[in-house]
Amino acid sequence: MKATLFIAAVLAVSTAPALAALPGDGERMAATCAGCHGTRGASPGTHIPVIGGQSSDYVKKTMKGYKEGTRAGGVMANLSKGYSDQQIDQITEAVASWKWQNSQNARKKGKIKISASGTEVCAGCHGAKGQGTPIGPHISGQAAGYLKEALSEYRSGRRTAAEMGMVKEMTDQDFDKLVKFYSQQK
């Protein structure tokens, strides 16, 4: 009797099709992000940033900043308030787990030549090529419009981060160089 049951159980297991893994709570909530940020965060836009594969700490800090009002935002200032802190943790873990895909909207005209010292100031937090480090977000292959806007907002004070203080002294031409350099990095 026991043996029969055992065989039946083995048969059941071996003939049952493998069940598809269901998307977790974070993945299902994060699917909403794709509406504006592209499927799995690969934004096709010029100004709405790529978020898939971005560092989870950075995405978390950003979304909580929107929620608490410490970061100025448009639709994100509203949408972030629709989720608990725990839900934001789940959403941002899912977003960070997606694969980074470079934006199609780099500043294309002309390969930029920039001296190593020109990006040294960024490399400390963002990595040599801007691929991100535990303390700074991924900026290489990011949408050019977004990078320009971010730099401008750090300069004007609309966005604040102690680490970005150096941009206060930069000109629009400096910004254009940096935007070209980082948006073109693969």
């Binding site: 836009g45 010029t46 709405i48 448009g74």
Partner: peptide, 24 residues
């Protein structure tokens, strides 16, 4: 808390609207 409208109209939002369409 998540429902609401933009505080004002702007060109910045016009650019985002275009990105929104491309994305969706």
């Amino acid at each position: 808390a998540a429902g609401g409208v933009s505080p004002e109209r702007s060109e910045r939002l016009g650019i985002q609207a275009e990105d929104w369409a491309r994305s969706i």
